[in-house]
Computed example of a mutant assay.
Amino acid sequence: MNSTKREGVLYVISAPSGAGKTTLCKEIIDIFPNLRHSVSYTTRTPRNGEVHGRDYFFVGKEEFSRMVEAGEFAEWAEVHGNFYGTSLAVLKECRSQGIDLILDIDCQGASQLKSRFEGGVYIFVLPPSIAELRRRLDNRSSDSQEVIERRIKNASGEIKEARWYDYIIVNDKFEVAVEQLKSVLIAEQCRAFRLLGSLSSTFEF
């Protein structure tokens, strides 16, 4: 086997708020040892139980603006009145070291990444219905009714973006959705174009 490093894969997951993408991401991290969660920067207030540096890097709007001006984000967007962004330095370092990254980001950010980086895998998570999405948001008890209504309203527009993603997973039964996401990652690791470089000294293609 030659020393050509396999480039880390970007798995980009988007969904309407409340569809369960964050929980899916956390679950799948424990299954793949070479997979890491990309921790985004955000200007929103931490929810109960969220930890700075683990769930998000929580920063003020001034610091976020400075990072934007300095070109420190691979992508960034305003979502539901708050700003989110992915560190460009971390993304490049992980890819160069052959570390796979899973990014839990919105459609705007996913579109930016798709235009900037080749070989990414784009996965959209849907709730089984809008009614179920509302129920999950209500049960989360972390947002005001005004915020919930805004998220429901935005969900219809976000769902329309699913058509350009590579895969769609309907998160009805969580254990089934986990298995489907797991299958996507396993299949993508076996894609020929990802393996040819590291296998070229062993086989003639």
Rank of each mutant, 00 (worst) to 15 (best):
Y84R: 04
Y84N: 02
G85M: 05
T86S: 12
S87V: 04
L88T: 11
L88E: 14
A89P: 07
A89F: 13
V90W: 10
L91R: 01
K92T: 07
E93N: 14
R95F: 05
R95N: 11
R95Q: 15
G98N: 11
G98W: 01
G98V: 08
G98I: 08
I99A: 07
D100Y: 08
L101V: 06
I102M: 08
I102F: 03
I102H: 02
D104G: 04
D104W: 02
I105R: 00
I105T: 05
I105K: 06
D106A: 08
D106V: 04
G109Y: 00
G109R: 01
G109C: 05
A110W: 01
L113N: 02
S115C: 12
S115M: 14
E118D: 12
G120M: 03
G120D: 00
F124G: 00
V125I: 09
L126N: 12
P127N: 03
P128E: 03
P128I: 04
P128C: 08
P128T: 04
A131V: 06
E132D: 13
E132C: 10
L133V: 05
L133W: 00
R134I: 11
R134W: 13
R134L: 15
R134H: 12
R135K: 14
R135F: 10
R136E: 07
L137F: 01
D138N: 11
N139Q: 12
R140C: 06
R140M: 07
S141K: 15
S141Y: 05
S142H: 12
S142T: 12
D143L: 10
S144W: 09
S144R: 05
Q145P: 13
E146H: 11
V147D: 13
I148L: 11
R150K: 15
R151Q: 01
I152F: 09
K153Q: 09
S156A: 10
E158S: 12
I159K: 03
K160R: 12
E161W: 08
E161L: 04
Y165H: 09
D166G: 00
I168C: 11
V170R: 10
V170W: 05
N171R: 02
D172S: 15
D172W: 15
D172R: 15
D172P: 14
F174K: 06
F174E: 05
E175G: 14
A177I: 02
E179T: 07
E179W: 06
